[in-house]
């Protein structure tokens, strides 16, 4: 519910210090909230932290929200010097979910941004280390999005194993599957060779060959196998 007059004193101060930034005031219980555009965010946050009248030195909370037509990042800030609080809401479009990072201003943002990235898919540009924090790497989906459903109750153990394999196969990049096929081929070839060697050795012993002749017999068999394969 946007209201025009900024009723909280911090919003008045903000209006005086940064008149050119377009923002909307939203009345929420506990903290005054402003909605800003993505482009104004770096300059706004810098001013919020460094200006002596604002001095927001504490980042309390960084959350992502999934309104179905757009995403949103919400920052909750507090100033220890003045005691006032502020909430900053930034709408993020679904097709281009990029937001500038705040880790250079508040180190507390580091882990919060990693978590928001893996849960919603919002990419924080400039983050030093945007790996997944709570989930495994390479999962392929973002759990907290509304489009991701809840899990079904599994009754049988086979269901679980099948589903895990399907998930892993779907999430693996196509190159990985080719590598696995290569490796599988190599394993099959080695197994075939071992069988041929075993059979050749038995035949040689049956014929009564020993030592050097047996070895030559086995090598003949291997050469024949390679010719067939090649």
């Amino acid at each position: 519910m946007p209201q025009d007059a900024g009723q909280a004193p911090v919003v008045e101060r903000l209006r005086a210090i940064l008149p050119q930034v377009p923002w909307e005031f939203v009345a929420t219980p506990n903290d005054p909230a402003i909605v800003v555009r993505r482009e104004d965010l770096p300059h706004l946050m810098q001013t919020l932290k460094e200006h002596p009248d604002l001095a927001f030195d504490y980042l309390r909370c960084l959350s992502g929200v999934d309104h179905i037509d757009q995403l949103e990042v919400v920052y909750h800030l507090r100033s220890f010097r003045h005691g006032h609080t502020l909430a900053v809401k930034v709408p993020v479009p679904l097709e281009d979910p990029h937001v500038p990072t705040m880790t250079h201003l508040w180190q507390a943002a580091n882990w919060h941004e990693r978590e928001t990235h893996e849960m919603f898919g919002i990419v924080f540009d400039g983050h030093p280390d945007l790996r997944p924090l709570l989930l495994e790497e390479g999962l392929g989906y973002h759990p907290l999005r509304k489009s991701h459903p809840l899990a079904e109750i599994e009754e049988w153990q086979e269901d679980f194993l099948e589903r895990e394999e399907a998930l892993v196969a779907a999430a693996a990049p196509p190159g990985a599957r080719a590598e696995e096929d290569e490796r599988a081929k190599k394993i099959a070839l080695a197994q075939k060779k071992a069988e041929v060697i075993k059979r050749a050795r038995e035949e040689a012993r049956a014929k009564g060959l020993t030592g050097e002749e047996e070895r030559k017999y086995v090598q003949e068999a291997l050469r024949r196998l390679e010719q067939e394969g090649g």
Partner: peptide
């Protein structure tokens, strides 16, 4: 409809709930 960030002093620190 609305949103709120409520916080209390839990034994570990500031426990907050952001409810939309």
């Amino acid at each position: 409809p609305g949103e709120v960030y409520s916080r209390t002093e839990s034994p570990r620190g500031e426990y907050g709930v952001y409810l939309v």
